[in-house]
Design a protein around this nucleic acid. Sequence first.
DNA 1: CAGGCCTTGTTTACACCGTAAACTCGTGTC
DNA 2: GACACGAGTTTACGGTGTAAACAAGGCCTG
Lengths: 216, 216
Amino acid sequence: MARKQKREPLSQERIVTAALHVIDAVGLEAFTTRALGKKLGCEAMAIYNHFASKEELLDAVADRLMSKTELPMEGSWRDRARGLANSYRSLARVHPHAFPLLATRRGTLPSAYGMYDRVFAATMGEGLDAFSVACVFRALAQYCTGTALYEINTTAFYAEGGNAEIPPEVAASVPSLAKVAAYFTPAHFDALFHFGLESMLDGFERQLIRRAAEHA
Amino acid sequence: MARKQKREPLSQERIVTAALHVIDAVGLEAFTTRALGKKLGCEAMAIYNHFASKEELLDAVADRLMSKTELPMEGSWRDRARGLANSYRSLARVHPHAFPLLATRRGTLPSAYGMYDRVFAATMGEGLDAFSVACVFRALAQYCTGTALYEINTTAFYAEGGNAEIPPEVAASVPSLAKVAAYFTPAHFDALFHFGLESMLDGFERQLIRRAAEHA
DNA sequence: CAGGCCTTGTTTACACCGTAAACTCGTGTC
DNA sequence: GACACGAGTTTACGGTGTAAACAAGGCCTG
């Protein structure tokens, strides 16, 4: 009855999926080739038949991660930008341990070319020149990356039992800091993110108008 | 004649300084306690008389780094914000290998309290409430962090001989991406950074006006 | 069918990492 | 002089990425 019950063979697909699971479960630091081997039911070295190095595997994981962002195709470029930003940020919430891979390595792998092209084509279709699109896209991407990293670090800090409260006797000497820092907590993440995002979007419009005027 | 010529004793100061030098020279990956020991003229374990762990030492290095940012005290909050953003970004250019420490760990160590307090006090003195200051500061910090990381990664990528050019036959299938990606090179870093920065600053003003109107 | 390659995975081994534990040794105090 | 102490060294351990040699099955060609 029972079939030979060999495990299905390794493949880049299967390895990357398992790697992402392991990273999600134990964090980037504890993600080792041996741990991945255990998860896959093989020895660590077997992985090297499919990836040249751990580094290359991590590139593939980053690529997988990036491929999960969704680009909304309806609405103005402003609507789509907002949607893309939210989708990107939500990646960081679903995969907080893996997300830093995106911020730490050069992530534009060919698998994402299609998505980028659609984003840019749609935006240029609304009359923006390539340089303006580059400006807007990079600014947004960098803001979202910075925000995601901050939220991840801060969340982890509190999860580990960290306490960011400034002791009262110190707070008295830095009253402004104490008042402002009260908003640097996970409870205010959404509000802060949206403020920055809407500010940027507002600012883009004004900057683009200004630029158009200069070139006219 | 020749004095006993003992090396001056270790101290947190001296260790952090040396650590930053080593990181600048060889990168974060290759920064090991043994390498630091060699630079200091002692064994690796001697460091543990002054720091509980490598992690704690890296915190101190991050703190040292952060303490190098300068806050311009003249001008409107907008001028000061621009100055602070530029100073922060220039950190990343001077210490590209060490900078990721700031983005990766919770960086608000007490030594920076004073600077933050001055920044926030000055801004609140211009009529912004604490929540608005928090919004503006975090958005700026996150944008600058994201930008710095991107610039560092991209610069390193090209320095290692990487080539981001999309092969012509592929470019034909993603024409918009090809046009926009031409601006994702070090030559355009300054222009992209300033576009994003000025956009945010413009946007802040509009958002703050809107918020004031709602609360009036 | 035989025999040899080729792909896939295992085993073993190595250099290097952070750091615990035990040691050495110069110095300050009674 | 005895003695504690603190800085620095030595040694050792478990864990890391991965090179190298090996084993075993599938596939092609005779």
